[in-house]
Simulated assay, not measured.
Amino acid sequence: MSRLFSGLLLGLALLAPGTMHAQEAADARLQPKFEAGLAGGGGWLPDYPAAGQNHVQGLFFPYVIFRGEILRSDSQGVRGRFYNTEGLGLDLSLSGSFPASSADNDAREGMPDLDWQGEIGPALRLTLWQDRTVRQRVNLELPVRAVFSTDWSSVHYRGIVVAPELAYERLNLLAAGARLRVGLGPIFATNRMMDYFYRVEPQYARPGRPAYDADPGYLGTRLQFSYRMPLTERLSIVAGGRLESFHGATNDDSPLFREKWNTSVALGFAWSFYQSEARVASTSSPFD
Rank of each mutant, 00 (worst) to 15 (best):
R132V: 11
P202S: 14
A249T: 04
W271D: 07
R135V: 12
G241P: 01
S6D: 07
Q117F: 06
D151T: 09
R199L: 11
T19M: 09
L45E: 09
E69F: 05
R199D: 11
V280H: 12
G185P: 04
E109G: 08
F246A: 00
R199W: 11
A214T: 07
P207W: 06
E244R: 10
P99R: 04
F5T: 13
G40Q: 01
L166A: 03
P143F: 05
D104I: 02
I120F: 09
W44L: 09
Q57C: 05
G37N: 04
A176K: 15
Q224R: 15
G121C: 05
G177M: 04
E277I: 02
L256F: 00
T85P: 05
A189H: 03
A50L: 03
P186F: 03
W261A: 14
A100S: 12
Q136A: 08
Y218F: 09
S153R: 12
T283K: 12
A50P: 06
D213W: 11
S226G: 15
P112Y: 10
Q224T: 12
V155W: 05
F148Q: 02
F34E: 00
R125A: 11
P216E: 09
L174G: 09
P46R: 01
I70L: 04
S276V: 02
L71Y: 15
A16W: 00
S154W: 05
S6H: 08
R158Q: 06
E35L: 10
R3Q: 15
G11E: 00
R199E: 12
G217C: 07
A163H: 10
R132I: 13
P202Y: 08
L14R: 01
T283W: 11
V134F: 13
L14Y: 03
I187G: 13
P164D: 00
S101W: 02
G121P: 02
D131E: 00
F225T: 01
A278S: 12
R258Q: 15
T150G: 02
D104R: 14
A26H: 14
V147P: 01
S153D: 15
Q23D: 14
A167H: 07
S264C: 03
